[in-house]
Every structure is written in structure tokens, then in C-alpha cells.
Simulated assay, not measured.
Amino acid sequence: MIQQIYPSTQHAFQYELNKDMHFAAAHYVPSESAGECSKMHGHTYFANVTIAGNKLDESGFLANFSQIKQLIHTRFDHSVLNEHSELFNDQDPNRFPTTENVARVLFEIIQEYLDGTANKPRCVQIFLRETPTSYVVFRPGAGGMPDA
């Protein structure tokens, strides 16, 4: 992967970890106003996950790079996002598999995992590129979770 500079988020944590990954997935946006995107199509998504914290775990990691990749890549690579019905929903626009919602779902998956670790770092940013010219940045709200 070519090195890329991502938008950064301000935080007061001592450590910041960034993990790049990609996954190939198909989706459709179940809305007439989505135009051509309402038809099934696919992307190679490129994601950058930013995790921050003050404490390292028993291995000296803020978070394990391999585990972060596995949470996303194993689940979504070569899948149809709409078929992940526990995460996406064709009836609720807040759960359509748009790039914005996919970025938020990646945050939710990663933060749930981090919450179960002893050192409890925070996911502070998801950068998700859908095409070479289009990307979304998701950052949790002030309370550390997405706004409802």
C-alpha cells in the first residue's frame, strides 16, 4: 500500500496507533435518490483506523495490529455489506451501507473490542476510502460514542 497522510484528530493521549487495511465488498444503497448506487456494485475499500490511549497492554501494545485487521477484514472481505443484517438495514437510512454508515460501523466494531481489553484504548478516527476520489472520516462524538 502506498503511504498516505490522513486527516488527524486532536487528542491528549500519549500513544496513537494507525492501522491501514483494505477489503473488497459489494453493496447497494436502498434509496431511489442514491441513483446508480441503488444498484448492486462493489468497491475495494481502504480503511485507516486510529486508536489512542495512555496505557499499553501486557504485550507492550496499545492494540494488536493483527487483531484490529482481523475484526474488519475477516468479517467484510468478499461479502455483500447489505447481507450483514446485524449491522445494516434496508429500512433505516442510518443503517444503509453508505460509506458514512460503514465507517461508523467499523468504529462500533473496533471500540466494542477495545472496551473489552485491560488497557481500554479509544478508537478516535476511521478514515474510509470508497473510491480513489471519495472518502469519509468518522470521529466519535464528545462522549466517545457516535451521536444518536
Rank of each mutant, 00 (worst) to 15 (best):
Y6V: 12
R95M: 13
I2M: 08
L17P: 02
Y45T: 02
H27T: 00
Q10D: 12
R75A: 13
H78P: 02
G53S: 08
N89C: 14
P146S: 09
V136C: 13
N48L: 01
C123R: 00
F46Y: 11
H78G: 03
P93Y: 11
Y135S: 13
G143N: 15
F13I: 00
K120T: 14
V105N: 01
F61S: 08
Q91T: 14
L81T: 02
V102M: 14
V124I: 15
M21F: 15
Q67N: 06
Q4T: 14
D92F: 08
I126D: 01
T44Y: 01
M40G: 05
Q125A: 15
T117A: 06
G42Q: 04
F88T: 02
R139F: 02
N48H: 07
S8L: 09
F96R: 00
D20N: 11
A24N: 12
Q91L: 11
A26F: 02
A12K: 01
C123W: 04
D57T: 07
P146V: 10
M1R: 11
E16M: 09
H84T: 01
Q111F: 09
E86A: 13
K19P: 00
L56S: 06
E112H: 12
G60K: 04
Y113H: 15
H41A: 03
K19T: 15
F138K: 09
I51E: 13
N119W: 09
Q125F: 04
R104A: 10
L128T: 09
A52C: 15
C123E: 04
R129Q: 15
P93N: 08
C123M: 04
V29L: 15
D77L: 04
T133I: 13
T50Q: 10
M1Q: 11
M145C: 02
H22Y: 15
N89A: 05
H78L: 05
L128M: 07
I126F: 07
D20Q: 11
A118V: 15
R129P: 02
D57N: 15
N64M: 06
M21G: 10
D115W: 10
Y45N: 01
V29P: 00
F96P: 00
Y135G: 00
K55Y: 10
R129S: 14
I68N: 01
T117L: 14
V137L: 12
M145R: 10
H41Q: 05
G35Q: 08
N94Y: 08
R75L: 15
N119V: 06
D115M: 12
G144M: 07
H73R: 04
S134W: 12
I68K: 00
V124F: 09
